[in-house]
């Protein structure tokens, strides 16, 4: 069952065009969103978060258009936007205390659990945290309100291998609980490890959107890893 559908998304910038981007995010599955720098990943994700206005296309969550249902959709969705530095001089506990009031489904137990798991200190301010800790702060907010869909822009960047591993395990657990996880990444081994579906974007177009197994069957040469496949495809060598 699709929890999010992106249909024919277009966005024109002077030097970049997002063309007819279409894919869907399924309940209980992890979708890896992959593409090189400047391929259109962040523009697509920002459009899904209503931060960027598409020039065309449609974005649906839970069968409802994002436009006009923003509040309800955001209540049921969790976001993380990488290492952006929010309120650098405010304590994490103070930020959380303000944010949690916006969510009817705020789960204090889950919040405490992830706070401990990520090793975060409520008395620390973002300016006192490493880049990896900031990513974890964003994830903490995204994971603490029983989101049905998680949209995460490069959640594993800046994390050490242990934290990355823990995070991927959390994704698996959320998936087993029925949530949908959609995350962009440059680290193909993360996708290899936990993604069920792959959305591959190249030069502003969706080059492939399918289950990981089907992707490997269609594009990978025998014995080739996913990373080698992507590198070959990005070099323009399409023949597996």
């Amino acid at each position: 069952m699709s929890v999010a559908e992106i249909k024919n998304l277009c966005k024109d910038y002077p030097s970049f065009h997002l063309n007819d981007v279409s894919f869907s995010i399924e309940k209980g599955r992890i979708t890896g969103f992959i593409g090189r720098n400047g391929a259109g990943k962040t523009t697509t994700i920002k459009s899904m978060l209503n931060l960027v206005h598409p020039d065309g296309g449609e974005i649906l969550f839970f069968g409802k258009p994002l436009c006009g249902n923003e509040n309800e959709i955001k209540q049921r969705t969790g976001y993380s936007t990488g290492t952006v530095n929010w309120y650098p001089r405010k304590k994490l506990g103070e930020i959380v205390d303000v944010v949690k009031r916006f969510y009817g489904s705020w789960d204090e137990e889950a919040y405490r659990k992830y706070l401990g798991l990520f090793g975060l200190d409520e008395n620390k301010t973002p300016r006192e945290m490493s880049e990896g800790m900031k990513v974890k702060c964003n994830l903490l907010l995204a994971l603490s309100h029983r989101a049905e869909v998680l949209i995460l822009d490069e959640p594993t960047s800046g994390l050490d291998p242990f934290s990355r591993d823990e995070l991927l395990e959390i994704f698996m657990k959320l998936k087993n609980d029925g949530a949908a996880v959609f995350f962009s990444t440059h680290i193909i081994s993360d996708i290899e490890k936990c993604a069920d579906d792959i959305v591959y974007i190249s030069n502003g177009r969706i080059a492939a959107s399918m289950p990981k197994d089907a992707f490997a069957r269609e594009y990978s040469a025998p014995g080739e890893t996913l990373e080698q496949t992507f590198l070959r495809l990005e070099r323009g060598e399409t023949n597996a």
Binding site: L49, N50, L51, E70, K74, Y87, P88, K90
Partner: peptide, 16 residues
């Protein structure tokens, strides 16, 4: 502006 407050607020479950 220094705290990226506008984007943070736009990501909260509220209309723009």
């Amino acid at each position: 502006r220094e705290a990226n407050d506008i984007v943070f607020s736009a990501l909260l479950p509220v209309a723009k």
